[in-house]
């Protein structure tokens, strides 16, 4: 475990040198939140009105949280890196080290997410406070739970990206799968809560990874309840196990047929 903590720490140290770059990335976050703020303000005639169980403030906080989770993930970059590692043979130089490749990628990526996530969280909260004037009802306990579930969501999401990236062992380029995944998460998990979708879609989404990687922590932030907390954590643990096993399977199968040509 110590080695993975060290990988994590090294990535944090590396990312801390690029804080300014992260601030530039925040501009697109700001624009997105600003658009949604105006959109919801337009839709809600009265800010206390409830649409699908959410008032206006909750709706906007929901998007602020899911967008923090999504934008600090940096999934596209990670997926591209794994695809290149597999196709270009770079993965070879990780294979002969005494750690697991999945563990290495996961812990190093979490290092970059944590730095990015911390900055985005601080700025996102400030943005919410400036626009909306107040937080949803929070307690110390609910804040801790939101942080824990956000971390679990990020780990699961990262493993999903790793899984998609490792598909490069089977097909030439796994990036289109990533594109598909990111769009599904964007539409069904980031912009609107699950309650906004009609009957059968809502049921499917409640059992889908979206519940674990995006909806869960955001829902707990805007509307905390113990039954919800238990639900979210159980679903997250189940998905964590499933996706980790899937990653291991595809990796083990892939490495056996690895071809590293030339130099």
């Amino acid at each position: 475990m110590r080695k993975y903590l060290y990988i994590f720490k090294s990535e944090v140290m590396t990312n801390m040198q690029y804080i300014f770059n992260l601030l530039v990335g925040f501009i697109s976050y700001f624009i997105l939140i600003f658009i949604f703020l105006n959109l919801w303000k337009y839709i809600y005639s009265d800010s206390n009105e409830l649409i699908n169980g959410y008032n206006m403030n909750q709706m906007i906080w929901y998007v602020i949280i899911t967008e923090i989770l999504w934008m600090s993930l940096g999934g596209r970059k990670l997926c591209r890196k794994i695809c290149e590692d597999v196709r270009g043979g770079n993965i070879a130089y990780n294979i002969n080290k005494p750690y697991s490749y999945i563990g290495y990628i996961l812990s190093s990526h979490l290092g970059s997410v944590v730095v990015k996530g911390s900055i985005f969280t601080i700025l996102g909260m400030l943005l919410g406070l400036i626009f909306l004037g107040k937080f949803p009802h929070l307690t110390l306990f609910s804040i801790i739970i939101v942080l824990i579930t956000s971390l679990l969501a990020t780990i699961i999401n990262t493993l999903f990206v790793i899984f998609i990236g490792l598909f490069s062992f089977i097909i030439e380029d796994a990036n289109p799968f990533w594109w598909l995944y990111s769009k599904v998460i964007l539409v069904f998990g980031t912009l609107f809560p699950i309650e906004y979708f009609p009957g059968i879609i809502k049921t499917i989404l409640s059992y889908s990874p979206i519940y674990a990687v995006s909806y869960g922590p955001a829902k707990l932030f805007v509307d905390f309840s113990i039954p919800n907390m238990v639900n979210v954590i159980i679903v997250q643990i189940i998905y964590l196990i499933i996706i980790y096993v899937l990653c291991l399977l595809i990796y083990r199968k892939g490495v056996r047929k690895l071809n590293v040509n030339g130099g």
Binding site: R2, K3, L5, Y6, I7, P98, Y99
Partner: peptide
Amino acid sequence: FKFFGAIYD
């Protein structure tokens, strides 16, 4: 070097 030290326990 510290990193590699940790990797190799």
